[in-house]
C-alpha cells in the first residue's frame, strides 16, 4: 500500500497521524497563547475535524490540514496569557558538585529572567524560537508548520535572539 492510498478514516492511520503531530501542534499553540489547556483543547478539536473530514483529505495532506485548522481556531479563539516556562528543577545536566552556591543562585535568577523575557517576546518570534530550541524543529519544518517562508523563520529567530540578549544584557 503506497502512502497516497492510506485512508485517514482508518483508525490505525488516524492514530499514527495523531501520534506524530499532536505534540508539536499542542506546543505550537501553547507557544502562541501560553494556556496549556486551551492548547490541548484546540489540538483535540483540530483532530476531530480531521476525523470528520477524513474522506476528503488525502493522507499526505492530513498533517498540514490539522496544523492549519489548529492555527485558524487559535486566531478565532484568542485567549492570551503569558507563556511561562518552568525552570526544570530535576534537570541533572548541571549537577556539578563544584558549583558554588552563588553560581547556582545566579543561574536560577538568570533562568527566571530568561523565562520572563521569552514570555515578553512578540508571539511570532516566540513561537519560532521555542519550536526551534525546545522542539528541535529545523527552520524548514517550522516554516511548514507556520506557513511562511524559511527565510521568514530565520529572520524571526534572529530577532528573537537579539531581543533576548538585549533584555538579559541590561538586566545583568
Amino acid at each position: 500500500m503506497s502512502v497516497s492510498d492510506m485512508s485517514v478514516c482508518e483508525e490505525k492511520v488516524f492514530k499514527q497521524i495523531f501520534e506524530q503531530n499532536s505534540g508539536i501542534i499542542r506546543n505550537f499553540i501553547f507557544y502562541k497563547c501560553g494556556d496549556i489547556d486551551q492548547a490541548e483543547d484546540l489540538t483535540q478539536d483540530a483532530f476531530i475535524k480531521l476525523w470528520n473530514n477524513c474522506k476528503k483529505i488525502p493522507f499526505d495532506k492530513a498533517k498540514s490540514f490539522v496544523m492549519k485548522v489548529a492555527q485558524n481556531s487559535f486566531f478565532n479563539n484568542v485567549r492570551h496569557q503569558k507563556v511561562v516556562l518552568e525552570y526544570n528543577k530535576n534537570d541533572n545536566k548541571t549537577d556539578c558538585d563544584h558549583q558554588s552556591p552563588e553560581y547556582i543562585l545566579e543561574e536560577k535568577e538568570f533562568l527566571l529572567k530568561l523565562s520572563r523575557s521569552i514570555s515578553e517576546l512578540p508571539d511570532k518570534e516566540r513561537e519560532v524560537f521555542l519550536l526551534s530550541r525546545k522542539d528541535k524543529k529545523t527552520y524548514r519544518e517550522i516554516a511548514e508548520i507556520i506557513g511562511i517562508s524559511q527565510k521568514g523563520v530565520e529572520r524571526r529567530m534572529h530577532l528573537a535572539l537579539k531581543k533576548l540578549k538585549e533584555k538579559l544584557g541590561t538586566n545583568l
Binding site: 516556562l85 518552568e86 525552570y87 526544570n88 538568570f110 530568561l114 525546545k134 535572539l161 544584557g169 545583568l172
Partner: peptide, 17 residues
C-alpha cells in the same frame, strides 16, 4: 550571553505532554 541563552532554554520546561 547568546550561548547562555541557548543553554538556559534547555533548562526551561514546557508542560508535559
Amino acid at each position: 550571553l547568546y550561548k547562555d541563552i541557548l543553554e538556559g532554554v534547555e533548562l526551561l520546561e514546557v508542560p508535559e505532554y
